[in-house]
């Protein structure tokens, strides 16, 4: 499937085993290996990364970037260690955020466990620790297909200088255009609109290109 997306023009592929931390499972390294073999676009792997060694194993299996979420919150220093050894460019800090009053709180374990961390402050901290990208998922918007969380994305992308990838809520092409033009997000992640063949990656890109968004 990953190779098929590359053919369609996908810029990157992200594999997330979203329930790995909850079920205590490690990353599916064999799947990563098989995918990486025939893929010539960047591959990000996430879910169940518990240590620097897990990260090394994922990179050795063929991942270009590794996304950390629960582990980063529990042991922030691991972000720095990984950035130092493997380079910031391969450390993606995934943040699952949910609105609480006037701000957003960080959730771990695939969005199941609330923490006391403020999402914007945590993003800044992750950058200081050496993360190279933020993969920001709005739990409020995720699955609703009603558009990305513009306010959250704008707040985080404004606060950090590393690239932010917006995630959660994409239901149609207009949503991607909206988040890329109304916030400083560098990229947008969409899953279901592509998985269920509602749209092709190429359709998405020509839509954005026609509207003046710079795409490959």
């Amino acid at each position: 499937m990953a190779a098929e997306y590359e053919k369609q023009g996908a810029d990157e592929i992200v594999f997330l085993d979203i329930s790995a931390s909850v079920e205590g499972r490690k990353t599916m390294l064999q799947v990563v290996e098989r995918t990486a073999e025939s893929l010539f676009v960047p591959l990000t792997v996430g879910g169940g990364i518990r240590s620097k060694e897990d990260m090394r194993a994922a990179l050795n299996a063929g991942a270009d970037k590794v996304s950390v979420n629960t582990m980063a919150v529990q042991h922030p220093s691991v972000i720095s260690e990984c950035a130092k050894d493997f380079g910031s460019q391969c450390v993606v800090c995934a943040i699952d955020a949910k609105r609480t009053g006037e701000s957003w709180k960080v959730y771990t374990h695939g969005g199941r466990r609330p923490t006391d961390l403020d999402a914007v402050k945590w993003a800044v901290r992750a950058q200081e620790l050496g993360a190279g990208e933020i993969l920001l998922t709005s739990m409020d918007a995720d699955g609703m297909k009603d558009g990305y969380d513009i306010e959250l994305t704008a707040a985080v992308a404004e606060a950090v200088t590393i690239p932010v990838i917006a995630s959660g809520g994409c239901g149609k092409l207009e949503h991607i255009y909206e988040v890329l033009t109304r916030t400083k997000a560098e990229a947008a992640l969409a899953a279901s609109i592509f998985h269920y063949s509602e749209l092709s990656v190429e359709q998405c890109k020509s839509y954005l290109r026609e509207r003046g968004v710079k795409v490959r």
């Binding site: 810029d11 460019q89 690239p163 560098e186 990229a187």
Partner: peptide, 9 residues
Amino acid sequence: ADRVPHMGW
């Protein structure tokens, strides 16, 4: 640059 690292296409 305003965004570092430079990531993407």
